[in-house]
Design a protein around this nucleic acid. Structure first.
Lengths: 198, 198
DNA sequence: ACCTGAACACCGTTCAAGT
DNA sequence: ACCTGAACACCGTTCAAGT
């Protein structure tokens, strides 16, 4: 079930070499200049023509899928694994922390991932489909054990975490913000359940 | 202290007319197509040449300042006013709700505003300076009355709210997400203060 | 002084010619 | 089949010529 991160279709030897060079170059360029770096830079870094880049990855999103593949697969597996963890709430927050850390290697990736989670149809959205389902299960189990705010649902929660502010230097999420979200999830057993409207 | 939303410098009659047409056009275009709409559209909508647009607003950020001016002034005044409100926590959450609603008329404005809050030097950052100070006061007062998580600070909190996910249709923030943040702010008096690390 | 719109530059995307 | 790189298109920015 866990495929290596290579091209999906059988490819001529040189084409496969280019495909892999492009994914590697994409990781390098996006890590260095963020996910909005000039697409041409990726081709140059990989040492191929622009046409070759577009042949393999018709849109930026397609390249991002190849780059995120492994990590998303990992998160999906982890979510299913944590369904058996003794403490459902702990399992949920552990997974959310992993999720948060997953997109922070590339500047701007997190925000982009957040969008893809809420909109359907894009290649990244398709990639994340199984992971979203697995996470929803983990979320529901936690909700059953620890009462969570009734109005919050799994996907907006992930989008919310994706949009948390980052340290300019490291690109990592500001820890306290993530903590605020986590501690805001349970419906307050002490009566403080998020001030009323008006 | 409250100036009308006109050009900062004395201007020739036609120049002033153009300035105001550009701000109006900017609001219309950004409301319709989001704050990343082609800059040229703004000039066309205002019925002026591109050079005129760039003369008045050397960067997109400068135009956004003119557009946000009134609203930011309002938020600043409101923050100072709420310092006298009887319930400091209520005052804080009321202001945060207003803040959240302020950038949702223009697609993408909220995210952009969030960035400007954390980075210094940009025109929008300068615009927001006084408001940030006024809000910090409101925040500190609330913290004194209701113990808040000790690690969360005013500016990241604003950045966090700016980055909350939006309904694709209306552009408004998903209510439940804002509620999660608000209810996550107080440091849990019941011992649940956001799970520990590791 | 200020305005206009053509010119320039940059980058995303396509495609004719090559292997 | 796949690759290359020049060509095209789009849009942000500048600037020479006009009022």
């Amino acid at each position: 079930m866990k495929l290596p991160a290579t091209a999906p279709k059988p490819l001529r030897r040189d084409a496969r070499r280019n495909y892999e060079a492009l994914v590697t170059a994409g990781k390098a360029v996006f890590a260095g200049s963020g996910v909005d770096a000039p697409f041409e830079d990726v081709a140059r870094e990989a040492g191929v023509g622009q046409g070759t880049l577009y042949r393999h990855f018709p849109t930026r999103d397609h390249l991002l899928v190849a780059i995120l593949q492994e990590r998303v697969d990992f998160l999906d597996a982890k979510a299913r694994e944590l369904l058996d963890a003794p403490d459902a709430w702990e399992a949920l927050s552990e997974w959310l922390r992993l999720f948060d850390q997953s997109a922070t290697e590339y500047g701007g990736m997190s925000a982009r991932l957040g969008n893809s989670l809420t909109v359907d149809g894009s290649p990244v959205a398709t990639l994340c489909g199984p992971m979203k389902t697995s996470f929803a299960n983990l979320f529901e189990r936690a909700k059953h054990e620890t009462p969570l705010r009734p109005d919050i649902t799994p996907i907006p929660l992930l989008a919310m975490i994706s949009g948390l502010p980052k340290e300019p230097q490291t690109g990592k999420t500001l820890e306290p913000c993530l903590e605020v979200v986590l501690s805001g999830l349970p419906s307050g057993p002490d009566g403080r359940e998020g001030s009323t409207r008006t």
